[in-house]
Computed example of a mutant assay.
Amino acid sequence: MNVPYADLRAQYHSIKPEIDEAVLQLLDSTQFVLGSRVAAFEDLFAPYCHAAHAAGSSSGTSALHLALLALGVGPGDEVITTPHTFIATAAAIGYCGAHPVFVDIDPVSFNIDVSKIEPAITPNTKAIVPVHLYGQPADMDPILEIATRRGLGVVEDAAQAHGAEYRGRRVGSIGDLGCFSFYPGKNLGAYGEGGAVTTNSAELDEAVRVLRDWGAREKHHHEVKGFNYRLEGIQGAVLAVKMAHIERWTEARRVVAARYDESLAGSAVVTPHALPDRRHVYHVYSVRSDDRDALAAHLSADGIASGIHYPTPVHLQPAFAELGHGRGDFPEAEAAAASILSLPMYPEMPVEFQERVAESIHAWSAK
């Protein structure tokens, strides 16, 4: 009995009649790009995030790019973020002509260390992009205090944190803008690429909507240089169906995480620490081990899939070599990258699969 890292087929089959009907209706409507199905999804997703507005986009990466552009980030600006994230966070900053400025992470939450943000601010700093990594929100109140005092924008990278909460507030509604990915494996996944930008500002929402559709409010009238960052109609239809189920799936993930916490107690791995003032939605359940590679090999030999999110911090990626960083610049991010291992995690995960994972880890721990 092999244990997969995730099982998208199981989720599809659990809602197959709803999805099939929605997709067929979309095909019949021929509203293949944007259109009423995307608008319907946006109308569901904004209140879910406790935000006034949500604008669908072609991906989580394009959502980040749009949000930064809407804040006026441009050439020569600096944007503070974390190196322990998917490369898209930094890439979107570069798309604006700006420079990512990294600060290290808190080793407990894996999120940006707020104590290191202010020393990184320069006259060129324009914004801060905290990443709600693995589904646990960053420490937003100190970030907002710094940003307000220093006149900086805040863009939440919530690509892994649909429905996560910080002190009772949903991510995506806390900063100036929030950015989500609907890549198929995400907690809310499309059947292809997709993303969204959320905000409580009508002005920022309008800027995002213009920029995502070639800089035009009306056809053939382009006010600014925009992009083809539109969400496809079929993804809007799929995501609208899934909105009725996301809370159930989120709570199922939290149950899976709680089982892991209990069953892995006493093993040789360090389990995630969910902070008490936050709702962790467990896009990833990442444990730490000083011998991570050996653990991954042991699990693989037992037929158990695992992953690493992420094995190389962004500051050490060849694509960002021009920033001049080297090993040792951000020791907590580097230590995390060398020791983290993501265990199988999905809402439909059978209890017996979790038991197999725990038994295998305990057997490895006993060696």
Rank of each mutant, 00 (worst) to 15 (best):
V210L: 11
T199N: 11
L231K: 01
Y229W: 13
G195N: 02
K126T: 04
V256C: 14
T85V: 14
W249P: 03
N187P: 15
G236W: 05
S339G: 09
Q317N: 15
L8N: 08
K16Q: 15
L295Q: 02
E334L: 08
R149H: 14
S173G: 05
Y5D: 07
K16V: 11
A237I: 11
A46H: 02
V238I: 13
A301C: 11
I128N: 04
E355P: 03
Y134H: 13
L133C: 08
V154E: 04
I15N: 06
T122V: 09
Q235A: 13
E355G: 03
H13I: 09
V314F: 06
R150Q: 14
L177Y: 00
S109Y: 11
V210H: 02
F45G: 02
E247S: 15
V357A: 10
F45Q: 02
S57Q: 00
K116Y: 07
P276V: 08
P123G: 05
H245W: 07
I340S: 06
D43A: 13
Q31A: 11
K126G: 01
S14A: 15
I112N: 01
S342H: 13
D141G: 05
F86V: 09
R230Y: 03
P311T: 02
A138E: 04
R167I: 09
A54H: 00
A67W: 00
Q11E: 13
D205V: 02
E18R: 12
L66F: 00
H220W: 14
V287D: 04
Y285H: 13
Q136T: 13
D205Y: 12
E145S: 09
H298I: 10
G135L: 10
E322H: 15
